[in-house]
Computed example of a mutant assay.
Amino acid sequence: MLRVEVAVVGAGIAGASAAARIAPHRSVCLLEREAQPGTHASGRSATMFATAYGNRLVRRLALASQAFLADAGHPGGPLLHPRGMLHVASPGQEALLEAFAAETGLARLAAGEVLDLVPILRPEAVIGGVLDRAAAAIDDHRFLQLCLRSLKAAGGTLRCNAEVTGIEPVGSGYRLATSAGLVEAELVVNAAGAWADGLARLAGMPPLGLKALRRTAVTVDPPPGSDPSGWPMAIDIAETWYFKPEGGRLLLSPADATEVPPQDVHAEEWDVAVAIDRYARLTGHEPRRIHHRWAGLRSFVPDHSPVVGCLPGHDRFLWLAGQGGAGFMTAPALAEIAAALATGRDVPDELRALLAELSPARLATIDG
C-alpha cells in the first residue's frame, strides 16, 4: 500500500506538469496506465504555441504560460523555437478572414505575401491570410521530461503500467486500486485526458460530458528542390487542414475531429487519404511516400475550455481535463492553478480571475 497526500492520475503533460508543481509541497504519486508517460495525446501532438489559437480562455492561459515556456534557464534552453503560424484563406473564405483578423488583432496579408512565406501554395488557392509571428514550436519531449525530472527531484513517485481500476472513499480521501497495487491519497487529481469521465465514474462522481476526438497526421517529403525549414506552420482559416515543417519533412493533417470512445487510436486510411488530397489540392504536389502516419485523441468538454477544480461537495477530487488541442501551450498555467488548489496555496493573481471560468461547476450539462 502506497500512501501519499496527492495521487495524480495520468502522466501526459497535464498530469506530469501538475505533479511536478505539487511535489515540493505535498507527497505525490503520478499514476500512468501505459508503459511510458505521454503515450496518447501528449505523445501525438503538433505542439505549437500560438496565442491566436483556441477560444478566449485558452489564449489567456497560453499567454500566462509563455514566460515559463520561453525561459532560457531550462536545461537545453527555451522550450519554444520560433516558427510562426500562417492562417491561410482560400476563395470563399473572405468573411472568415476578416472576422479572424478582427478577433485576433493581427494584420491581414495579401495573397502574394502568403505565397512568399509558403511558396508551395498554389496562387489560385490563396486570397490572403494572417500571420501570427509570435507562434512557436514547443519542444514537447523535453518539456515532458523536464516535468518528470522535477517530480523525481522533489521526492515524487511515478508509477507506470498502473491503470486505475477502482476508487473508493477511505477516511478523508480515496483508495485507488491499480494494476500496480493499491494507493491511498487524501486528494485525487483527475488528469486522465480522454479517460477522465471514466475515472470520475469509478469514484462515483458525475461526468462532465467529455468527448474524445481523433486527429490524424502523416509525414511526407516536401516538393523536390524546396526547403521548408524557414516556413511557418500553415493552417486553413477554417481549420480543415494544416501542415508544418518537421525534421526536414512536412507534417500534414486533415484537422479531423471524429468522436470515438477513449482508446489507443490509429490512423484510418480514409483520413490519411483526405490529408494527402487536401495538401495536393493546395500545393499541386502529390507526395510519393508517406513516412509515418498516426492519430491521437483530443478531449473537450462542451464549451471547449479546460476544466480545473473541484465540484461542490467533492473537494477531494480535483479535475484537470478538457485541454483539447492546447495541452502543451497551456500546461504551465493550468499546472500552477491545479497545484495551488491541491496544496491550499493562493492561486497567482494573474490566474485567479480565471478560476470561475475553469471550474467544473460551470458545466450545465453535468448529470449523474
Rank of each mutant, 00 (worst) to 15 (best):
K211V: 15
G10E: 14
G325M: 01
A50M: 14
P306M: 05
A23D: 00
L109D: 15
T157M: 07
G166W: 04
T39M: 07
G324C: 04
G181E: 03
L57E: 08
D346G: 11
G248K: 04
L320E: 11
R249E: 13
G193M: 11
L199D: 15
E357D: 13
T343Q: 07
L363C: 03
D264K: 07
T343I: 05
L213R: 14
K211P: 01
Q66P: 00
T104N: 10
D227G: 07
Y242F: 08
V218A: 10
R278I: 00
G327H: 05
L182S: 09
L144H: 11
I290A: 03
A234W: 11
P332F: 02
F300Y: 15
W319E: 15
L131C: 09
P302F: 00
F49P: 12
P360T: 01
G181H: 01
P332R: 01
L31W: 07
A7M: 08
E357K: 06
E5M: 04
W294I: 08
V170P: 04
T165R: 09
H74K: 01
L250K: 12
V220R: 02
S27T: 02
G38E: 09
V307A: 00
D197I: 01
A20R: 00
R316L: 06
R122H: 09
W231T: 11
A107N: 14
P123Y: 07
T47C: 15
I237V: 15
